[in-house]
């Protein structure tokens, strides 16, 4: 029998963390991030991490707390503009940074998880992103070769899981989580709701349980909104 469910972040992370490892972390901005697992990595104190994530949180939340704690050596991201500390550390030479176009990052992770070593894309041709990479012409168009990306550990966030690790994401909190689930040697998911096997509709599973090694139920998540934007309610006449 498979035992995938763990009590909390600390027990799920036990035995899988090491200095210098590569960790993929799901989320777009602060949306769909595994809050408990990030806090668990902070508490474990592992250092020299390479973190693959679209963004790096904000100064005091999300992956920003690992940055503030000096645990990240290198980030592979597409956009880090919401994090002042990031800019300071990077410009001061204390942090390595590899920018990937967002679609290239997503596809590199998808490819990595699918056993595809590399692929050609038009994205970034003629820019600094293509420097040092093979390029090739197909049907008169120029393409850049990009490589698949994998990680020692993926930490992801889903809405619901069954005890087998079949996952359903909610709205735009899906983002990078499904690809990262496939690209980690070990993948740990943090979910809002855990149900018994058989309770999820097999037709509507977003990530099959084969990709998931460990499951925790999220506790006390803040689910912070980065930019609250609203409209006025029209007066009822």
């Amino acid at each position: 029998m498979r035992k995938k469910v763990y009590a909390d972040a600390a027990s799920a992370l036990d035995g899988v963390l090491a200095d210098g490892m590569t960790i993929m972390a799901g989320g777009f901005g602060l949306c769909g991030i595994p809050e408990n697992l990030i806090a668990g990595i902070r508490d474990a104190g592992v250092k020299n991490l390479t973190v693959v994530s679209n963004n790096c949180g904000v100064d005091d939340f999300g992956l920003g707390i690992l940055l503030a704690n000096g645990q990240i050596r290198k980030m592979i991201s597409s956009y880090v503009g919401e994090n002042k500390l990031f800019e300071k550390l990077y410009l001061g030479g204390e942090l390595e940074l590899e920018f990937n176009p967002q679609g290239t990052l997503a596809e590199r992770i998808r490819a990595g998880g699918a056993g595809i070593a590399g692929f050609y894309t038009k994205t970034g041709y003629g820019t600094v992103i293509a420097e040092g990479k093979p390029t090739r012409e197909f049907n008169g168009h120029h393409y850049v070769m990009e490589t698949g990306l994998t990680a020692d550990l993926s930490i992801i966030k889903a809405w619901k899981a069954d005890k087998e690790g079949n996952l359903i994401y909610r709205k735009t909190a899906r983002n990078f989580n499904p690809m990262m689930a496939t690209a980690g040697k070990i993948t740990i998911v943090e979910v809002e709701e855990l149900v018994e096997i058989g309770e999820l509709d097999p037709e509507n599973i977003h990530t099959p349980g084969i990709y998931i090694d460990r499951i925790i139920v999220e506790q006390g998540a803040e689910k912070r909104i980065e930019k609250v934007t609203t409209r006025k309610r029209e007066e009822v006449k």
Binding site: F28, G29, L30, C31, G32, E82, W159, R170, K171, T172, A173, K223, R224, I225, E226, K227, V228, T229, T230, R231, K232, R233
Partner: peptide, 18 residues
């Protein structure tokens, strides 16, 4: 944009706005 009080942290655009 949502009405005030109806913001959903799982529902944002690429500018991270609700």
């Amino acid at each position: 944009f949502p009405y005030e009080g109806e913001e959903d942290p799982d529902l944002i655009n690429a500018g991270k706005q609700t």
